[in-house]
Write a protein that binds this DNA or RNA. Sequence first.
DNA 1: CCATGTGAAGGTATTCACAGCC
DNA 2: GGCTGTGAATACCTTCACATGG
Lengths: 213, 213
Amino acid sequence: MRYHKIPDETVRRLPVYLRGLMVSADQGHEHISSQLLADSVGVDAWQIRKDLSYFGDFGTPGVGYNIEKLARGIKKTLRLDVIRRAALVGVGDLGSALLAYPGFRLYGLDIVAAFDVDPNKIGKVVSGVEIEDPAQIGALRQRDISLAIVAVPRLAAQATVDQLVAAGIRGILNFAPSKVVAPKRVKVITLDIAMELARLPYYIPRAEQVSES
Amino acid sequence: MRYHKIPDETVRRLPVYLRGLMVSADQGHEHISSQLLADSVGVDAWQIRKDLSYFGDFGTPGVGYNIEKLARGIKKTLRLDVIRRAALVGVGDLGSALLAYPGFRLYGLDIVAAFDVDPNKIGKVVSGVEIEDPAQIGALRQRDISLAIVAVPRLAAQATVDQLVAAGIRGILNFAPSKVVAPKRVKVITLDIAMELARLPYYIPRAEQVSES
DNA sequence: CCATGTGAAGGTATTCACAGCC
DNA sequence: GGCTGTGAATACCTTCACATGG
């Protein structure tokens, strides 16, 4: 079933597999079966095999998958085979935490620019990145930066996205709790942290408060 | 179709609707049509109507929805009709940002306890919450705290979850980039920020770098 | 023999179109 | 006339079972 359109849900799982493979490689393994990888990342073995079947065959029957080869294949599929340069807009509490967050490097993603409207912050260096005036966003086009992270207040989010779109940004990860619109050619993923916590109580059956013994 | 099991995807969207309703209420509106709400939150009108049909009829044909009544209904369905007390474990960069994050309040979620292994942090107050020794996690049972946020390093995540489960926690939002296991009665949602950014490049067509004019 | 890759079956969610009510 | 609520149709994703290949 090679060379088909890859389901969104599969794309969502691929970074999980990639992380599992990297952990396995760190432990010195060279090959891994779908069953073993499944156990380590918490999905089912057939799900992994089906997902991988959408974009090529990496495994050897009776042996399993060569970890390095499979990791390269997934990276290529996700277009993570080149280092991606990203910009951050909004260096508040969350923005600062994102700048310090080491996890992005794992996927070849590198935050190399940061912007904030606060004049007191401009010029300061946070986690090795100098904070710039948002007026400079227009120049991203010349700096080989194709991704952006938006961590500004809700009411500033749409204006920020508009600026980024005008600057030629192609993908945006939006942490502001609001809908933002962008042209079809720009992919926007909105991630509202509070909303994730908000759906947790639904799954907690009655007697939600624990009574003392 | 009332009184059915509500699809997971619907549960995921309900907090979005709730936020849209609150914004609308702030603007002084009393009623809203599915079409208007749809425009403001970025989903389709029939999707909203279908989602709401799973757990009761709130609307009036020809008029729309009474905002306050619908908001109450959604809150009740999500079990957000009572204030939920939550604990945070791991007060690093991300944890501190979460403590300062105002968005949780919107959904009646309140972070009232924080824990960190670092002796230098214990006793300090961050965003109004005193940081405690993780040895105190066991006492959460007596403090009417049913939710927890895990923001510790990957290798500490499972041990932290085990402690929280033993303390009677019923729902966990995990930011650590790893699979964690918990008994079925405890709902765990894992949110790996880097993974969200990692799937962005996939959706960016070729010529990902913008060439200068 | 063991583990992959994949058709086919089954389940879940999205989308449509319209009957029914204000 | 306008807007809701929902059966029916469609699309999508998951799960199974097994043929195929090392």
